[in-house]
Design a protein around this nucleic acid. Structure first.
Lengths: 197, 197
DNA sequence: AAGCTAACTGAACGGGCGTTCAGATCAATA
DNA sequence: TATTGATCTGAACGCCCGTTCAGTTAGCTT
């Protein structure tokens, strides 16, 4: 039996990516086999190779896709206002974006070490592009004297780390909603950089 | 050949743990084989089983050891003073402890998903014990009115996330020394919780 | 000097891995 | 309706996995 009724590339392709993302996030890239992915997709392992050249390519595609998505979404977000307003927008954007796709964040930050060197370099470059957006805001605010910062680079990394941590505990059915989380983290970030209320 | 000159349990045992920690931190638990560990130790794979019941036990032992070490070291740190001083001590302790053993932090935070459920529960409990120390300080400071906090629990997790991020970029031969890092992060944490200078 | 035993080797076990590919199947095209 | 080509199966490839264990060796004890 092949080509079961209702199975087309348009559905299988995205399904492969979705399943791989979920399994990689849950168990880790190295711990997930192509056969496991195939089983959850509902095909044999060989069929996966219609959608990826190999397992590494699948991971790379997921990570590249995530970085592309976030950079694009960030671009689409209007960034008007002073440094404080821009920082607020960045913080809330970052939280909102990742709470909507926690698995992508998990994979993007934990599977870097499983990328082959050349792929690693490409993802790192995209990540730096994104982090530079925050660093730019911090530097601008520091120059304008509205932020108190010891070191813009370190502050950038510290804030990103803090924000990323949200996916470790947030539960959609928990006591806090997205708005609450945005407010709490924005408050901490705002105070951390010494911005007035 | 067996029992090569100079190889005893007292040296091989710790070596197994050290090698496993380094490899797990670098490549991930699932991606590292017992044969790889054995090769770096300088023995055959079978010999590892004189020092661990199985691979999972080796991971568990490393993580349990780390949590035990940090709780013990924390206990040994005098925690006198008001809430602000206690927070400062905690922040600097946390940074100093982990910058001295970044691999242990890597493994402890990234390999949780590779623990069998019962082991996971044990490690989580220890981790909560540690985080409760910080939460206690924050709660006390909030009660005394010296801290501005929206949510002690979330603040605890946010601060820990921020501090843990330090091992992602810190390099012993970089431009910043331990003292600088402690100062920068303490500054951000202090402001984040709204504590006066 | 002899015996003991901790420490280790080397081979083997069953099983799963990523990947390939000839052949089967079915939706769309002509 | 006949043909094509995208899609998938099922089996196979060589390789590596975690773990076990009988046998060998070397340092300690007596």
């Amino acid at each position: 039996m092949a080509r079961t009724a209702g199975s087309h590339a348009e559905t299988t392709g995205p399904k492969v990516r979705a399943v791989a993302l979920r399994l990689f996030a849950r168990y880790g890239y190295a711990a997930v086999s192509m056969r496991q992915i195939a089983a959850e997709v509902g095909v044999q392992a060989g069929a996966l190779y219609n959608y990826t050249p190999d397992k590494q390519g699948l991971l790379m595609s997921l990570m590249q896709g995530h970085m592309h998505d976030i950079l694009e979404a960030r671009q689409a977000t209007s960034s008007e206002g002073d440094a404080v307003q821009q920082l607020e927008a960045f913080v809330k954007f970052h939280i909102g974006f990742h709470l909507a796709r926690p698995e992508a964040l998990f994979v993007s930050y934990m599977e870097l070490r499983n990328l082959e060197p050349q792929n690693f370099a490409r993802i790192e470059a995209l990540r730096r592009d994104y982090e530079n957006e925050l660093e730019g805001i911090l530097a601008r605010g520091a120059a304008e004297g509205v932020f108190t910062l010891d070191d813009p680079k370190i502050s950038t990394l510290a804030i990103i780390s803090m924000l990323n941590g949200v996916v470790n505990w947030f539960r959609p059915d928990g006591r806090l909603g997205l708005g609450d989380v945005e407010q709490i983290y924005w408050g901490m970030v705002r105070r951390a950089v010494g911005a007035a209320e």
